[in-house]
Simulated assay, not measured.
Amino acid sequence: KQAGNHGGTGYPQVRLLALVACGTRTLIDAVFGPTTAGETAYAPRLLPSLRTGMILLADRNFGAQKLVADIAATGAEVLVRLKNGRRMPVLARYRDGSYLSTLGPVRVRVVDCEITLTTTAGKHTGLYRLATTLLDHHRHPAGELAALYHQRWQIETAYLELKSTILGGRVLRARTPDGIDQEIYALLVVYQLLRTAMADATSTRYGIDPDRASFSIAWQTARDLVIQAAGVIADTVADLAGTIGRHVLADLLPARRLRISPRIVKRAISKYQARGPRIDRTSYKATTSIEILAPASP
Rank of each mutant, 00 (worst) to 15 (best):
E77F: 00
A64W: 09
F32Y: 15
R45T: 07
P48M: 04
A69K: 03
N61F: 12
T74C: 10
P48D: 13
A72G: 07
G63S: 15
N84D: 15
P34M: 04
V68S: 03
L50C: 03
G23N: 11
T52M: 10
Y42A: 07
A72T: 14
I55K: 01
A69M: 02
A64N: 10
G38W: 06
A69P: 09
R45K: 13
A69E: 12
G23F: 05
A64I: 05
L82K: 05
A58Y: 03
D59E: 07
V80Y: 04
T36S: 15
A72Y: 00
R60D: 01
T35V: 15
A37V: 01
A76T: 06
V68Y: 04
I28S: 07
A30L: 11
D70P: 06
A76F: 00
I55P: 01
V31L: 06
P48N: 03
T24W: 01
D29L: 03
T40I: 15
N84K: 13
L46H: 13
G23I: 04
V80C: 11
A64Q: 15
T36K: 13
A43G: 08
R51M: 11
P44A: 03
N61E: 12
V80K: 01
R60W: 02
A30Q: 01
V68W: 02
E39Y: 07
A43C: 12
I71H: 02
I71C: 04
G63T: 12
L50R: 03
L19V: 00
L67V: 05
L57A: 10
Q65Y: 03
T24E: 04
R81N: 08
I28V: 07
A58W: 00
R51S: 13
A76D: 09
I55Q: 10
A76C: 11
V20L: 04
P34A: 14
F32Q: 02
A43P: 09
A43N: 12
V68L: 09
L46Q: 11
M54T: 10
A30I: 04
T40E: 10
A58K: 04
N84V: 13
K83A: 13
V20R: 01
V80S: 05
V78T: 01
V20K: 00
L47F: 04
T40W: 07
T35H: 08
